[in-house]
Design a protein around this nucleic acid. Structure first.
Length: 445
RNA sequence: GGAGAGAUGGCCGAGUGGUCGAAGGCGCUCCCCUGCUAAGGGAGUAUAGGUAUAAAACGCCUAUCGAGGGUUCGAAUCCCUCUCUCUCCGCCA
């Protein structure tokens, strides 16, 4: 296991060793400063210690073989034994040293984000993201628009007070037609993705272990964003390490399906969709989107994951994006597609498109989906491979995207489809999922 | 929760202290043979890391038989802990 660690780093360890300059320059584009000096000195040490350790191991192995051989011939083994008298201690010390240094390297490498793809625009923040296209025209209202909170509350269908009583801030409680609309939306999204876009529906665990989160890149760096779960009654002192974490996105369980697997070429591409709740601590977002359903500790999402041949991943990204867009098109909600800049893409991504839906009450577009190609970044961490054309194991490429965030879609429907009387016109694509109801009012059970 | 059984390469499966990285089979690749088809013969076929190199191939070395520790000159094999799977009993939506 000692030598397995480099499998978990972000890049080929070879690339880091031979072309560190380019790598750190690329990382700088996304605002990450690779600790070059520290890495180099650790690497130098690693090299010396590893060589030394392996020499000692080789010696031990050859001497042990000699002993076995001599013994089988009935020869005296005492002189050979003397030869290796203190080899054991020396070896153990070297192995320990090596392990320590490997661990230090591993710690550094696990926190290194993915390299931005060449097509990812350079930039520092959200402000530098590039608009790719727009769909639909924001509707012109001849009355003062309400935001989704006032709409929901005045209909008596959205109850933040109860949610706060039950759980606290950043939770919500929906009733009647609104709760049904929420359910209808998820069904609608799932049906489109499975029946029209070719995704296979999966039902996944909502509690996952550390390895899974390490695999997709949420750990070790972003543990403060997660909710932890400690099973059963435990002593306080045991509570250091959680048994599970609640998933922040279904990307984690779905993508990890291929962790430590070698899949057959014919199985590619793999396309999965799941509807799950997502749980995020939203640490560090104090004061941001405090009103309404936009930023919650718990929200539902329909998640798309593709596991593909490396040569296909950018084509797959465009396809995945289109699959997510289709939902908004069918719901007739105006949106735009943004290419995130190097400073704004997520830890595991090389390239990310955000879909932003029009919210009239905020008079702006807000993120409703994020579609990313992670190339081999997650696959390397997960040791997720396929057997390529030459029969050799090769790292897969993984992609994920929301198709869509259900709560935010609900917000968009409320705000975009509101009438002057505060009732909501249900998009025609959803009416079948609402038992034919066309207008959302306070009356619906 | 109680009692038992198990985890070995892409797959199946042998292996209870020494030249075992692992028999045999299946699958796969290449070659030969056979006028098709089927069958047969031969060779090859794990992964990762290190070393060397401009880079690679070959070679050499190291690690890996669920995971982690221990015993030993030497562990797939013995001991301990954990995880997972299976069977039976109990409990349970």
């Amino acid at each position: 296991m000692l030598y397995k660690y480099f499998g978990v780093c972000m890049l080929e360890i070879q690339q880091l060793r031979t072309d560190l300059k380019t790598v750190s320059q690329n990382l700088a584009k996304r605002g990450y400063h690779f600790p070059v000096e520290k890495f180099n000195s650790l690497e130098k040490n690693r090299k010396t210690i590893q060589t030394h350790t392996q020499e000692l191991q080789a010696k031990r192995n050859s001497v042990s073989k000699k002993i076995g051989y001599a013994k089988s011939k009935g020869e005296d083994i005492a002189p050979i034994m003397a030869e290796v008298a203190n080899l054991g201690d020396e070896l153990k010390q070297a192995e320990t040293e090596l392990e320590q240094i490997q661990n230090q390297l591993k710690q550094i490498l696990l926190e290194v984000p993915n390299l931005p793809h060449e097509s990812t625009p350079d930039g520092k923040s959200e402000a530098d993201n590039q608009e790719i296209r727009r769909y639909g025209e924001p509707r012109q209202f001849d009355f003062a628009v309400k935001d989704h909170v006032s709409l929901g509350e005045s209909l008596g269908l959205l109850d933040f007070e109860s949610a706060a009583k039950l759980s606290g801030s950043r939770f919500s409680l929906m009733k009647g037609g609104l709760a049904r609309l929420h359910r209808a939306l998820t069904q609608f999204m799932m049906d489109i993705q499975t029946q029209e876009n070719g995704y296979t529906e999966v039902y996944v665990p909502y509690l996952v272990n550390n390895e899974s989160l390490l695999g997709t890149g949420q750990l070790p760096k972003f543990s403060e964003d997660l909710f932890s779960v400690y099973a059963g009654e435990k002593e306080e002192t045991d509570k250091q390490t959680p048994n599970f974490h609640l998933i922040p996105t279904a990307e984690v369980p779905i993508t990890n399906m291929v962790r430590d697997e070698i899949v057959a070429l014919e199985q590619l591409p793999m396309k999965f969709v799941a509807h799950t709740p997502c749980f995020r601590s939203e640490a560090g977002s104090y004061g941001k989107d405090t009103r309404g359903l936009i930023r919650q500790h718990q929200f539902d999402k329909v998640e798309l994951v593709q596991i593909v041949h490396p040569q296909q991943s950018y084509k797959a990204l465009e396809q995945l994006l289109g699959d997510a867009e289709k939902i908004l098109q069918k719901l007739e909600l105006p949106y735009r597609v943004m290419a995130l800049c190097s400073g704004d893409i997520g830890f595991s991504a090389t390239k990310t498109y955000d879909i932003e839906v029009w919210l009239p009450a905020q008079n702006t577009y807000r993120e409703i989906s994020s579609c990313s190609n992670c190339e081999a970044f997650q696959a390397r961490r997960m040791q997720a491979r396929f057997r390529n054309e030459k029969g050799k194991p090769e790292l897969l490429h993984t992609l994920n995207g929301s198709g869509l965030a259900v709560g935010r879609t609900l917000v968009a429907i409320l705000e975009n489809c509101q009438n002057s009387d505060g009732n909501i016109l249900i998009p025609s694509a959803l009416q079948a999922y609402m038992g034919g109801i066309e207008l959302l009012t306070s009356e619906i059970k």
